[in-house]
Simulated assay, not measured.
Amino acid sequence: MTSMTPPEPVTAGNGRIKVWYRFAPREGWLPHDTEGLWATRLSRDTARVENAPFLQDGVAEGEIVRFVTDADGLHWAQERVEASGNCTIRVLPVPSGPLGRSPRAVHELLSPFGLGGEVFSEEFPLVAFTVPADADFGGLKALLVRGQEDGWWHFEVACATDAWRDG
């Protein structure tokens, strides 16, 4: 799960930690300047990201990142060490559109592409999806564009690969 609350050290079982990202809030968007992503610790200063980000651009699930741990025990992302080949897209259903505010309907329409995703909240039904490296990028992009043109949703590509751009 992604966290936008003020950072604090978080560790789960099985070597999972929160790796924090700091960024400038986007105008007209959620007023957060940090996001914590679950990650599996691989070494003293590397971890594999385990979920799709709602706010941070340029990172996808499965990527290996280098982090530094501050005096408070927070793990701050520094750089990507190894790309996963996955992409991150975010989809926000249009409340007045045919899907209403239903993240479930978004999931159902995109399910043929094998995407995993999470919903930000019931109040703000933004869905962050991980697009696997072997997905049908062309078909997915066509559906995303059609859905936006037909008023189903708004979407953005938060992390793209060359294969996504070429697909």
Results as ranks from 00 to 15, higher is better:
Leu126Tyr: 03
Thr88Met: 10
Phe113Trp: 11
Arg22Ile: 09
Ala135Lys: 01
Gly62Lys: 11
Glu123Pro: 03
Leu74Asp: 05
Arg22Gly: 12
Pro103Asp: 09
Gly28Thr: 14
Asn51Ser: 15
Pro125Tyr: 03
Arg26Ala: 14
His154Trp: 15
Val10Cys: 06
Ala158His: 01
Glu79Asp: 14
Ala60Phe: 01
Gly97Met: 09
Asn14Leu: 13
Ser96His: 13
His32Trp: 15
Gln148Thr: 07
Ser3Val: 11
Glu79Trp: 03
Val106Cys: 05
Thr5Gly: 10
Ala83Gln: 06
Pro132Phe: 09
Gly15Leu: 08
Ser111Arg: 07
Arg90His: 04
Ile89Arg: 02
Glu8Asn: 09
Glu82Cys: 07
Val94Ile: 14
Gly100Leu: 15
Gly85Lys: 02
Pro53Val: 01
Val157Met: 00
Glu35Asp: 12
Arg101Phe: 03
Trp76Gln: 00
Gly147Ile: 09
Ser111Asn: 11
Phe67Pro: 12
Pro132Ile: 11
Asp136Ile: 13
Ala128Trp: 03
Asn14Trp: 12
Val119Leu: 05
Ser84Trp: 09
Val10Pro: 06
Ala158Leu: 11
Gly13Pro: 04
Ser84Arg: 01
Glu63Met: 15
Ala105Phe: 02
Gly139Met: 07
Gly100Val: 06
Leu110Ile: 10
Thr34Ser: 12
Phe67Thr: 03
Val94Asn: 13
Ser43Asp: 15
Phe129His: 07
Gly151His: 03
Arg165Ile: 09
Thr5Glu: 12
Thr69Met: 08
Thr69Pro: 00
Lys141Cys: 06
Glu149Phe: 04
Gly100Ser: 10
Gly114His: 06
Val81Gln: 02
Trp38Glu: 02
Thr130Trp: 01
Arg90Thr: 00
Glu63Asp: 15
His107Asn: 12
Arg44Ala: 14
Gly73Ile: 09
Ser111His: 08
Phe120Ile: 02
Thr88Gly: 04
Glu82His: 12
